[in-house]
């Protein structure tokens, strides 16, 4: 049977639109709230990425850093993250969840134990920001054996030869970083150029689902709707921050944002 991730892409395709992927930080702003947010936005999102927060992220911009620090300050632990996923999956059995974070946390938890826990709580995929190809080969194949998608990242600096190798070793999904930036940067490359690079990746192997992330907001999402999937992260984290500042309900505000995002790519 196809993985939930693959199915999610197929569903979106059948509706003639890209899959919408959301990113929120586990435990932002606390354990209970982040589960509520996740459940609520999954009514509109096709795939939910859940970040495991790290206090020295080397590829995240301000918005996600703020969310991560907030979650850590409120006491989120790795085991809490797995319990969030487990709880989520109780009511949203077919909604794919991707965990995303930095390698040190997996390393300290122990790779094998981490994978077992992912399997138990029904995690569908993993993105590890600082474990690139080919260093991730062994870990990625361990994931695959346990039916967890290891999602390879590709960026504008990835060479042609490297791209070929990465795609060959990839699973169901590939994540294309739209530009040279940390997360949440302003889109400094034209959508046309991004889609051109995207097509180059797509042409290597049409069966792989390629999503585009970094710099995607309400303003920019429509211009990239040709992609298999689009990831919105910082804009969501920012909405949570603003809701807290204004003492408004973050669950409602974020859900409305994701609903608007979805409408833009329908």
């Amino acid at each position: 049977m196809a993985s939930l991730l693959k199915q999610a892409f197929q569903n979106a395709k059948s509706e003639n639109r890209p899959a919408l992927l959301t990113y929120t930080v586990a435990g932002d702003n606390n354990k209970k709230k982040s589960l509520e947010i996740l459940k609520s936005i999954s009514n509109y999102a096709d795939i939910c990425e859940l970040g495991f927060p790290h206090n020295t992220p080397i590829a995240d911009g301000g918005q996600i850093q703020t969310s991560a620090y907030r979650a850590i300050k409120n006491g989120i632990k790795i085991n809490d993250i797995f319990s969030i996923v487990k709880n989520f999956k109780k009511s949203k059995k077919t909604k794919p969840i991707i965990l995303m974070g930095y390698y040190n946390m997996i390393f300290q938890y122990n790779e094998n134990k981490f994978i077992t826990k992912c399997k138990e709580s029904k995690v569908d995929g993993l993105i590890v920001v600082d474990l690139p190809y080919p260093e991730n080969k062994i870990f990625a194949s361990k994931c695959k054996k346990n039916k967890i998608n290891y999602i390879q990242l590709v960026s504008p600096t990835t060479s042609k030869l490297r791209l070929k190798k990465i795609i060959k070793d990839s699973h169901d999904m590939i994540y294309y970083i739209s530009m040279l930036s940390t997360t949440g940067g302003k889109l400094k490359v034209s959508p046309k150029k991004i889609l051109k690079e995207y097509t180059k990746i797509k042409n290597q192997n049409k069966s792989k689902n390629v999503v585009i992330g970094f710099g995607i907001t309400e303003k920019t999402i429509k211009s990239l709707k040709k992609a298999d999937g689009l990831v919105v992260g910082s804009a969501i984290c920012k909405e949570i921050t603003n809701s807290i500042k204004k003492r408004q309900n973050a669950v409602i505000n974020v859900s409305n944002l994701v609903k608007r995002l979805k409408n833009k790519i329908k």
Binding site: I58, A59, Y103, V129, D130, L131, P132, Y133, E135, L153, V154, S155, P156, T157, T158, S159, R162, I177, L180
Partner: peptide, 12 residues
């Protein structure tokens, strides 16, 4: 040691 870096930095 090693090089635990984001994909974007692989090339530079």
């Amino acid at each position: 040691g090693g090089s635990f870096i984001p994909e974007t930095l692989k090339k530079p």
